[in-house]
Design a binder for these strands. Structure first.
Lengths: 153, 153
DNA sequence: GGCAAAATCACCCAAAAGTATGAGCAAAGT
DNA sequence: ACTTTGCTCATACTTTTGGGTGATTTTGCC
C-alpha cells in the first residue's frame, strides 16, 4: 500500500522535489542578486536553462516511449522437403531416386545415362525398379506420384 | 534544397524562435521589474514555468519513436492459378492445354483419347503442337515447363 | 460467304520407352 | 563362407511415343 503510493506517484514526487530544489536555488540566487544588482541577466539566464533541463527531464519521465511497430510480411516459399518416411516405406534407393528426379527434370534415358556416367541399360533397369516400387506403368505416372508424395522436387 | 533545410532544422528553428520569444519576454519583464522592484518573485516564478514548458515541449520533439520491426511469415498456398499471360504468349489452345494436363496426370495417349472421346491420332497431333509451342522434345519436358510456367496444376 | 484457326483423323516410319531374362561385382551382415 | 542388397551391364523383344505428311470438318470472325 505504502510502496504502491510511492511507485504510483514517483514522478510527481520527483518533480516536486526537483522543483523545491530549484525554487530554493532560485530563492538563494534571488537574495544574492538583490544584493548584487548588476548581474541580473546572468541570474535570469541560469534559471531559464535550469528549468528547461527540468522540463526535458520531466517530459521523458512522463511520456511513455513511443513504439512504432512496423509489420513486414515475408512470403515463405515452396521449399521442397523430402518425405523420408514415404521414401523408406517405398524402399527407393539413392540411385533410383536420383534417376527419378532427372526423369522429372525432363531428361531422356540416354541423357540421364550420360549425366550419371552409366549405360542406357542401367537407366532402364533403375526406371523399371522405380515403376515397380511406385506401382506405376510409365514415367509420367511415376513423376506425378513422386511429386505428390514429396519424393522429388 | 531550401525546403530540405527547413525540414531538417525544423526543431532547431522552432527552439530558436521559442527561445527568442521567451528571452524577449524575459527582457521585457526584466525592464518592468527593475522599475517595480517588489514583484521580483512573480517574475522569477513566471520564467521558471515558462522554461519548464519549453523543456517539455522540446523533449517531445527531440525523442524519436522507437521502431520495432515485426516479421510475419506468410505461407504461400498451393492453390494453382493459371498464368494467362504466358498461356496467351505461347498460344496454346484450350484443347492443347487439356491434353497437356491429362498427360501430366500420368495418362497414356490412348487413355487421353478415350477420356476425350477422340482418336489416338488426334492426341498425337495435339501433343506435337504442344511440344512445338513449348519448344520441348518430350512430354516430361513439356510437363516440367508447363508446371514451372503455371500453365497446368 | 470467305477466310483463318482449331479440331479431328489417317498413314508411315523412326526413336524412345518399357519388359523380360540373365549376369557380374562389391560391400555389408550373419 | 554364405547371403543379401545395390549398382552396373547386356541382349532381345514389345509397346508407346513422336515426327512427318496430308486431308477433312468445325468454329468463329469479318
Amino acid at each position: 500500500m505504502n510502496s504502491d503510493f510511492l511507485t504510483k506517484n514517483k514522478d510527481t514526487i520527483l518533480y516536486g522535489i526537483s522543483l523545491a530544489v530549484l525554487l530554493f536555488l532560485l530563492k538563494w540566487l534571488e537574495i544574492r542578486f538583490v544584493v548584487i544588482n548588476h548581474a541580473f541577466e546572468i541570474y535570469a539566464g541560469i534559471i531559464a536553462v535550469l528549468f528547461t533541463a527540468l522540463g526535458i527531464w520531466l517530459s521523458m519521465k512522463l511520456t511513455k516511449p513511443k513504439v512504432q511497430i512496423q509489420v513486414i510480411e515475408k512470403e515463405v516459399g515452396e521449399e521442397f522437403i523430402l518425405n523420408e518416411d514415404e521414401l523408406n516405406r517405398l524402399g527407393l534407393s539413392k540411385r533410383e531416386l536420383e534417376v527419378l528426379q532427372l526423369m522429372a527434370d525432363g531428361l531422356s534415358n540416354q541423357e540421364i545415362a550420360n549425366k550419371l556416367f552409366v549405360s542406357l541399360n542401367t537407366i532402364k533397369t533403375h526406371s523399371s525398379k522405380v515403376f515397380e516400387k511406385l506401382d506405376v506403368k510409365r514415367r509420367t505416372q511415376a513423376i506425378e506420384k513422386a511429386k505428390r508424395l514429396s519424393l522429388i522436387s
